[in-house]
């Protein structure tokens, strides 16, 4: 399996196709932070929010700046395209925990404050908010 092909699908925003290639690349390089950052977004876009949050948590525990320092243009980060789609999705509806976690994760790639605000809401909604609170505590207060 080729990491390069996974990268290509990610660039073309074919997140579902990218997953198996990036997962394989991660298996060969378990410390691959760049791969993890991409996989989080791929999992989000394919509805695998739990898996996305698990990887997200791993990176935050290691160093939150891995995500915070993302450059939208230089890293070809799609969060600017994805956030409006997600915000539009549940307009007027009650926000689920998954929805709040998703936006918290997406916003951390481009706006720490917004991410924190969604994390706070998610922590209030969660039955067991321990991990969310850990993430909040690891983030710099801006």
């Amino acid at each position: 399996m080729s990491e390069m092909l996974g990268n290509r699908y990610f660039l073309a925003r074919q997140f579902d196709k990218a997953i198996p290639y990036l997962e394989d690349a991660l298996a060969q390089n378990p410390d691959g932070d760049k791969i993890k950052k991409k996989l989080i977004l791929c999992f989000i876009q394919t509805g695998q929010i739990e898996r996305a949050f698990s990887l997200f948590y791993e990176l935050i525990e290691k160093n939150p700046n891995i995500i915070i320092d993302t450059d939208i243009y230089y890293d070809d980060c799609p969060c600017n395209e994805l956030i409006p789609e997600w915000e539009k999705k549940s307009k007027g509806e009650e926000k689920s925990l998954e929805y709040l976690e998703t936006l918290a994760m997406l916003y951390l790639y481009c706006n720490v404050n917004k991410s924190l605000s969604y994390l706070k809401k998610a922590s209030r909604k969660a039955d067991n908010p321990a991990k969310i609170i850990t993430v909040m505590n690891r983030l710099p207060k801006v």
Binding site: S2, M4, L5, R8, L11, A12, R13, Y73, Y74, D76
Partner: peptide
């Protein structure tokens, strides 16, 4: 140098059938 090829060459293939993607596949 260092920029993504899709940002420089802006071909419609960059968003659909990238030739390198085809070779990889």
């Amino acid at each position: 140098i260092g920029d993504f090829c899709k940002n420089v060459f802006k071909s419609k293939r960059c968003f659909g059938e990238c030739p390198i993607e085809r070779v990889l596949e």
